[in-house]
Design a protein around this nucleic acid. Structure first.
Lengths: 339, 339
DNA sequence: TTGTACGCGTTATCAA
DNA sequence: TTGATAACGCGTACAA
């Protein structure tokens, strides 16, 4: 496209060899001081920009990492990206962002493209529809450094940064139980994704610990998005009055927002008729008419830790595989009716 | 790092030339059907991934665009990025995201790196501290396709996608005037940035149109961030009671959020003691205790239009320079006291 | 101190 | 239909 200046062009303009120009620009010591000066000036006046493509072809190193996220919601992922960006900025890596829109097929395409672009490593948060791990396995086995974050795949030969989902979910359910709720429903995430399974697991553990029988009708598979929370809640509200839940725990805040919409539509009030809690601490959680009790996920921290780990893996092949857990915090507001 | 499979390796394994393998993989018609079949199978079994770096070196094309944003706030920019992503996905471009943290120096480094990586074009929203346009001029003159968005630089030889800042600002100020406010303050953005200047301009135009004298004490330079709105508002509140404003217009919603904090701290109520309006329609705007009247900026649209224009410029050198304006909408809520 | 030859993985071009 | 050669821009290794 734009005719870019090359070492050779500078060399010709100066009547020296390309190598000399290269040495001068890379500040090697085996160049005559005066020659170096002339080269630097000429390079500037000609508007030279080094060609990293050519460098990468030789060095097999791009100083670029790929990031695959399933959604660009308002809440969690931009914050994660900010954390990643902070690290890549400091370490002089660049970041190729891809967005899979929760579709595994898009994710596969994205990962293949990143491989073709020879990124030095990939940070992945899997799309919820993923069914087949062999694709990831191949990618990892090919030698591509990979770190999963938030939505992890364990025991696949790659590190992972997540929050203590199970414990946190148990904790917030426990909080509801402590305040006297017995009929507690759960709007879950997809069970194919680790966080979906873990958080549901935490809910179940809490019930079990208090000998509360599990009622299958009170567990509805929703999803990560508002709309899915809305629909799941409607299912719960359509139950016969006698089996309706007193409280609802949800897979995440957006899902809770949707559920809240549904509750309002049915003319019920929060927390008096139904209590509800989320998981994320979305930026909107505290601003609701009835502020949402939730689990704060340190998104920035997840991004930062993920990027740090990935770069360690890239730069040291002996870096061990780790499951890194970032700790959450229970944020008590009004929606649980416990204040 | 990971030993990647090359055309040559496949060729050797098959006893053909690298060229034949290349042709087969690129689905050229001058390859024997059976040979093609053998190549495709071998490539798959060996786990071949094409090397775009090498391709780019030859073709001088990376199918990658750079995006430079000044902030990863919760509100505006992630939405813009979503719009950009939608376009790049459809057109098979990748997106390198860089974040300048409102610092011109970081922005320069980012742009230079993007140039070195030979991206096909760059989308830029300038950092507020920018003082010297010659750097942009050089970049554009070097032949690099550039499109500015949101925070534009006009008459520099590049297209620009923004909202009708001046008109919108005039409109929302007008709205305050129509409802009887006379002493209207303005918390501005930096005047070095186009949006800062344009929005202040709109405010001034509205006053002038109604023969309301401009009171310099009521115009405070704040900034795009919450903290800066907070501090600017404190200045206004510290004015002698007689000259305190009845209403405040702000450069953007985050700035308004900060100002609202300050108003609360002074024990005043919105909109009864002081009315306030924003600009953005941040996701939080409607959720505030007193929902914020504001201008809705279609962020997704800005990103989409910007990316579309950039790709047009990349693919057709004759694509004309345009200033594209995306239209906003006045969203009336309670904070203006007009309902 | 400076220059030449070569290779990184790919494709365009020309020859067989 | 297939293959050999050169080129993209750069840096390593060696020679002058």
């Amino acid at each position: 496209m734009s005719s870019q200046v090359t070492l050779k062009q500078i060399a010709e303009a100066l009547g020296v060899s390309a190598m000399t120009v290269s040495r001068a620009l890379n500040n090697r010591d085996n160049v005559d001081a005066k020659t170096k000066q002339r080269v630097l000036e000429k390079a500037r006046s000609m508007g030279y920009t080094p060609n990293h493509i050519a460098k990468s072809l030789v060095s097999n190193k791009t100083y670029t990492i790929g990031v695959v996220i399933p959604a660009i919601s308002h809440a969690f992922f931009p914050e994660v990206v900010r954390g990643i960006e902070e690290v890549t900025y400091k370490t002089n890596y660049q970041l190729i962002l891809t967005h899979a829109a929760e579709q595994f097929e898009r994710e596969k395409v994205a990962i293949n493209t990143l491989r073709s672009k020879r990124v030095d490593g990939i940070l992945i948060s899997t799309s919820q529809t993923v069914e087949d791990y062999s694709f990831y396995k191949q990618t990892i086995d090919s030698g591509m450094p990979v770190v999963f974050f938030d939505r992890c795949i364990e025991n696949i030969g790659a590190s992972c940064v997540s929050v203590n989902d199970r414990t946190s979910s148990r904790q917030i359910t426990q909080h509801l139980i402590d305040h006297g709720y017995k009929k507690i429903a759960y709007i879950s995430g997809p069970q194919k994704v680790a966080v979906g399974k873990e958080r549901l697991g935490g809910y179940l553990e809490a019930l079990e610990a208090h000998d509360i029988p599990v009622d299958d009708k009170l567990i509805v598979e929703g999803g990560f998005r508002e709309q899915q929370g809305y629909e799941a809640m409607k299912q719960l509200l359509d139950l016969p009055e006698s089996s309706r839940p007193q409280a609802v725990a949800t897979i995440n805040d957006p899902s809770a927002f949707g559920a809240i919409e549904a509750i309002k539509e049915y003319g019920l009030s929060i927390p008096d008729d139904i209590a509800i809690v989320g998981f994320t601490d979305d930026i909107r959680a505290g601003l609701l008419e009835c502020p949402l009790t939730t689990i704060r996920q340190p998104a920035y921290e997840v991004g930062k830790k993920g990027a740090e780990k990935l770069i360690k893996v890239i730069e040291d092949p002996d870096e061990p595989i780790e499951n890194i857990e970032v700790v959450t915090k229970l944020i008590i507001r009004n929606s649980c009716g416990c204040t």
